[in-house]
Design a protein around this nucleic acid. Structure first.
Lengths: 146, 146
DNA sequence: TCCTGTGGTAAACTCCGTTTACTGTAGCGA
DNA sequence: TCGCTACAGTAAACGGAGTTTACCACAGGA
């Protein structure tokens, strides 16, 4: 792709690297042996760990409907990455439990993300990178991110 | 949505505000009277202006196939936001031209994005915001964003 | 014991992007 | 000039992904 000059607006400045990281993550997970994982599955394997969570909460975190999340969970269950067990405290509810393979995905994902962080550190320098993260966290904490 | 503690990893720190901006943009465009615009259409109305560009280039910029971009352009043409005229210099090619209404979308989008920037400025302070953008541009320019 | 709200599920539908395949033109080399 | 290859765009079939609509089962209080 022919590289365009960096735009001035914050929207694109956030979007482009975010998409790049997303694509790289799924590519590296595939390369690490999790061939049957596809892009939307990442919505499940997202901070914090889905282990112990309820489907409805995962849907809310991911910003999608309960039904859509349930389809993802169903597919991941068939692929052997997790199980949905009954919640003993509430017979209506279920709880997501990662299998050993699912936990391996979580670990690998964390490894890749740390690798990416290392690269950003190398590019920006330790201090600048930390400040970048601090600024983004501050924006997150405010109402700028609804 | 119950607010989670800000995560430590750069991936999510970029993704979440980016998605929030995206959703807000399409919502405000709809509210501004462009009711028939939907989320994927934003891929066309993206920096720099699609006016004068060729479909293939727009596809490349957006990171999608020519066919997918063409569907978007076709739909936007039916809705009256643009036209695809012949390129006199190359009989194979076409050129996208925004209609008056399409230009209005572009203007409104820019207005919204500037409004969002104002809010970030207010949250982070002028200096910090400028540095945030500078750091993101630096990361963009490097190989951290492939 | 109702009755309302909650958690989850199921199926139909819609949107959207890719894959596959094709048309017509540009541009180069023989 | 002819012919071949590359390029720009288009069309249709396909598949995946999420929403809408509808439903069931249980919780918890009136």
């Amino acid at each position: 792709m022919s590289r365009l000059p960096p735009p001035a607006l914050i929207g694109a400045l956030l979007r482009v690297p975010s998409q790049a990281i997303h694509r790289r993550l799924i590519a590296e997970l595939n390369a690490a042996g999790f061939r049957d994982l596809r892009l939307p599955h990442i919505a499940v394997f997202s901070y914090p760990s889905p282990d112990g969570a309820r489907p409805g909460d995962l849907a809310e975190r991911a910003g999608m409907s309960k039904q859509a999340m349930n389809q993802l969970l169903q597919s991941l269950e068939q692929l052997g990455y997790l199980r949905r067990i009954a919640d003993e405290a509430d017979a209506r509810a279920r709880i997501v439990r990662l299998t050993r393979r699912g936990q391996a995905v979580w670990d690998e994902e964390f490894r890749v993300l740390e690798q990416i962080e290392q690269e950003w550190r190398a590019t920006l320098g330790e201090k600048s990178f930390e400040q970048l993260k601090r600024l983004l966290q501050k924006a997150w904490a405010s109402d700028a991110v609804p």
